[in-house]
Amino acid sequence: MNWLLRSLQSSLGKKFLVAVTGLALLGFVVTHMLGNLQIFLGRDALNAYAAQLKALGGLLWVARAGLLAFFVVHVATAIRISLENRAARPVRYAVDPGIQRTVSARGMLVTGLTVFAFVLYHLAHFTWGWVMTDAHMLTETLADGTTRHDVFSMVVAGFQQPLIALLYVAAMVLLGLHIRHGSWSFVQTLGLNHHKFAPAIRAAAAGLAWLIVLGNISMPLAVLFGAIGLPDGVTV
């Protein structure tokens, strides 16, 4: 295995790791969004989906562990690469306008680190329930008398706070910038490039980034502007 580890430590190998893990995270981001968009289908749909995920039990923990591993490798390798890049140019240019570099490419470390901080906040908010403890405790009683976690009301109560909603919107814009560069850059990094498709791939990446931003911010904005409200009888 030494040969593999050695190759993954080369400049190309490290980029390979960032690209593969970034791709996995991208898959998660898209699935996560599609699942959450069920908030527009109402309380029952979202809460049933959440209960289904919980019911996966062991499988859910395997998925979480895998996701965590991808995240850690992505972040650690990306930070290492960024430090090496800085060291490769010890003296900066006095004049440095750039020719065709993009804001999204330039900002990868900053947008990545903000997404990292946001993910911690997001987990503290909705998974660990540290931000709004009361809303996190809400349950829904079904017709057969059983109860389940009222994810819908928890999310709506959260996004009814303007500051929290705006924080989510801002974080999604930065994630969108990250994905705008990352989701075409990985094609080149993994050597899947073809010069004839390159412009189409870049356009598709920009489209995907827009979809992810718009899809995700539609939820806090819908709550903030009152299109989605707390169910009757639920107060926080």
């Binding site: 400049s11 020719i99 065709q100 570099r101 993009t102 490419a105 094609v187 490039n193």
Partner: peptide, 25 residues
Amino acid sequence: GFGNCRNYYECEAACPKEIPVKFIG
């Protein structure tokens, strides 16, 4: 001690011989 590629494509724009970045991929 050269840095890593982040696909800025500045190299391609600056190259006096217009070497395309497809070679990097």
